[in-house]
Design a protein around this nucleic acid. Structure first.
Lengths: 205, 205
DNA sequence: ATGTTGACCGACCATCGAGTCGGTTTAAGC
DNA sequence: GCTTAAACCGACTCGATGGTCGGTCAACAT
């Protein structure tokens, strides 16, 4: 049984280190040797576990990235009764730098999406699927929010979800190259203005 | 004098074709031979005009990308007296597919920024500078809009500019892989909601 | 006309990185 | 103990690609 343990251990190390370095330097800018050197592993070991660099990355997506997106962006959507508050809270948290295992700005889906866009359609589609999950969940809580009277009735929930996603993705682009603190604050501030504009007005009799 | 003409002609062809192919396939995913074959030019010709691939791309940035950003995003900011309307119009136009010389979704600054981020700091900084110019101009017209009574006084213009840029950049990520028509409409719709929330309310006496 | 130089050619070089493969070590089954 | 095969090693192949260099040709100056 120790054999099985060894395998899991090695694959886990490969996954974790791969995600870290790929995210830090970009997939195409990282050679397998870069990662292997860091782990003191050989080419042979690598190709024993994965059939290619691409297969390896897909494995990372399915084992780590999916989890992170769920944990950071999907599950928190249901912790607050008001969906707009839940969304603000989840984004605020997701934009927090240096969360879980020192990965700056926690969530790297967008970086990879842009890197693979037009270069590797298979990986792109995996990443798009993850984004889609987020979108679907956003739309769902927004619609509930409409029913519960938190969001104005004439609002297009799909449009709102799109807009939230767009601004969040773009924000991450800006964050990766600037003073994050202030940008994050500005972003959340404006997001609240926006949310204010789609909130159901209280008819103060 | 014909010699000079020939040179300008060749460099212009290299610039235009380079931008087109780099944008379509990505800088790192495009080899010089890809471009040279398309133009029936030789390696020798290329290195006669440019000292490296990187130098070549910087030249493209300075000659073409800067122009496009100005034309699409900066100059249109002053055509409408109300800055919020001017911004909506400019973004609507910039997101129009297939404008000027068949370049889908006109504006590619963001694609390049993400590609070079963490890989080539020199090129990144050139691209960031261009974005900065846009930002500065946005802030400027927003502040004028505040003076002219189009925007509520308590609004943070820098924050608004950041938010606009973020949502626009993110939008382009989404557009590059989906049904653009509907997304664009949704985006502009929500942008208007947002703008509505930062507009100076008329005190209807 | 003649020498010079700019524009261009294309074979060649050097490097890098993904993937291969025969070999070695060691846990597990009998 | 002995065999088997999983886990791993690392030298090697091989294609891709950025960049070099000696040479050709035609425009321009004198």
């Amino acid at each position: 049984m120790e054999r099985n343990l060894k395998k899991r251990e090695t694959m886990h190390r490969l996954h974790a280190m791969g995600l870290e370095i790929f995210h830090a330097k970009g997939y195409y800018n990282t050679s397998l040797d870069d990662i292997l050197k860091e782990l003191s592993l050989s080419k042979g070991a690598f190709y024993h576990h994965f059939k290619s660099k691409e297969d390896y990355f897909i494995s990372i997506i399915q084992n780590l990235i999916v989890q992170k997106v769920y944990a950071l962006l999907v599950e928190p959507l249901n912790v607050n009764e008001n969906p707009l508050h839940a969304i603000v809270d989840s984004l605020e948290n997701a934009l927090e730098p240096g969360k879980s295992n020192e990965m700056a700005y926690g969530f790297m889906l967008h970086d990879f999406m842009t890197e693979f866009n037009k270069r590797n359609t298979e990986i792109s589609s995996y990443l798009k699927d993850i984004l889609k999950v987020w979108e679907v969940n956003l739309v769902s809580v927004l619609k509930n929010g409409k029913i519960d009277g938190h969001i104005a009735r004439h609002i297009d929930c799909e449009g709102v979800a799109t807009y939230i996603i767009a601004s969040y993705l773009g924000m991450r682009s800006l964050l990766s190259e600037n003073n994050g603190r202030q940008l994050k604050y500005q972003y959340l501030q404006q997001l609240k203005h926006y949310f204010n504009s789609i909130t159901e007005r209280q008819v103060v009799a």
